[in-house]
Design a protein around this nucleic acid. Sequence first.
DNA 1: ATGGAGTTACC
DNA 2: GTAACTCCA
Length: 457
Amino acid sequence: MSTAIALFTSDLRIHDQPVLRAALDAADRVVPLFVLDDGVLGSRFCAPNRAAFLADCLEDLDASLRARGGRLVVRRGDPVDTAVRLAAETGATAVHLAAGVSGHAQRREDRLRRALGDLLHIHDAVVTVVAAGAVTPAGRDHFAVFTPYLRRWEQQPRRDPAPTPRRVPVPDGVQGERMAEVRALLASAAAGDPSPALPRGGETEGRRRREAWLGAPLDAYQDRHDDLAGDATSRLSPYLHFGCLSPTELVRDAEAAPGPGAAAFVRQLAWRDFHHQVLAARPAAARLDYRPRGDRWAADEQELAAWREGRTGYPVVDAGMRQLAHEGWMHNRARLLTASFLVKTLYGDWRAGAAHFLRLLVDGDLANNQLNWQWVAGTGTDTRPNRVLNPLVQARRFDPRGDYVRRWVPELASVEGPAVHRPWRLDPQRRAELDYPEPLVDLEEGTRRFRQGRGLS
DNA sequence: ATGGAGTTACC
DNA sequence: GTAACTCCA
């Protein structure tokens, strides 16, 4: 009787799960293992929203495995030590793992390889459609420009989705935490309570939302995905981040849908792969400027706090920040405009903004988050560093009636129409009644502030 | 405003 | 010939 370990990370699903599939194909019995990483649990990365979502994912995965005669083994500790110890304990002759792109994932992979040698099997294209590094430009290790990347990405042959296992035979007597204990551990390790309107995690919920999204016509996506109040986005990002959904399956099924909306949606999924291949090649870009531009970031702590709490005095910015706090999620257009406000208007360091997003976003993904922030900050792969998103222009374009603001900024709920975007123009008595902050900076009087640090000798 | 055309640089 | 860069939007 041979045994293999399927080490789950950001691939918490049983459908199109190459890691689990390979373990099952290669051995008689499989230990599906998830390690609550002490290094993550005890750090600032243990964000309440993702910890709660993760508990849902693990519970759902355990239930799916139990329905197939198995279960999920969850242990707390160092993932490498835990996997090595479990391999010795069960006599496992193989450990299967999905390739990761972050520095943390790469170090974990390296340590596992040193400890396990040939026993370790790394699987590509589990968390992305095209594996990081699978396509590269001549003479470089990664693409720095999206359009040529997309061309190659589209031509790349797709992996066939792995068949869903019917039976998962798990050896008897393998110790693991009970699911109630897992949830309690995650809740106590998290620094604070989850957002009130956090979505439910797990593959089952993810697939339900996937079917709903693909079942409705995708036509409108191209025209409406930027509309803040319309909220016509898939909201599948948390499920993709935790691997509850296979991006390969999602792209295949979206491509089967007709029309330009489907292509626009697939394009967004390609951006995900693009950022993953950048981070895999430059893991330090999670912290350091991809292209250092000599910026001198200037926002003070009070301005930063006002931004975090959604009281900058710019209603569309504050609406985004409050949606983030309430749902653990923000409309992508709002992410761009709130990020631009911090970085380009207040001159706040993108790292501070990215850290706040990572604390709250339930889909908070190192590659997408840090590299999108760098894109906005002008330090990323983009070669146009001086792009500024004016919140008033963004508001007019993407929340023309002001509905998004009224939904998320209750102080302004009584202000009708697009006037809600400029509360400073209301008469003074009305403004006093609203109890809404004065704008942190004036963007209407031609006093546009330019970023500092550029062009200085 | 997560672009396009034209140019440069390097395979 | 391809990807990155520059300028122009």
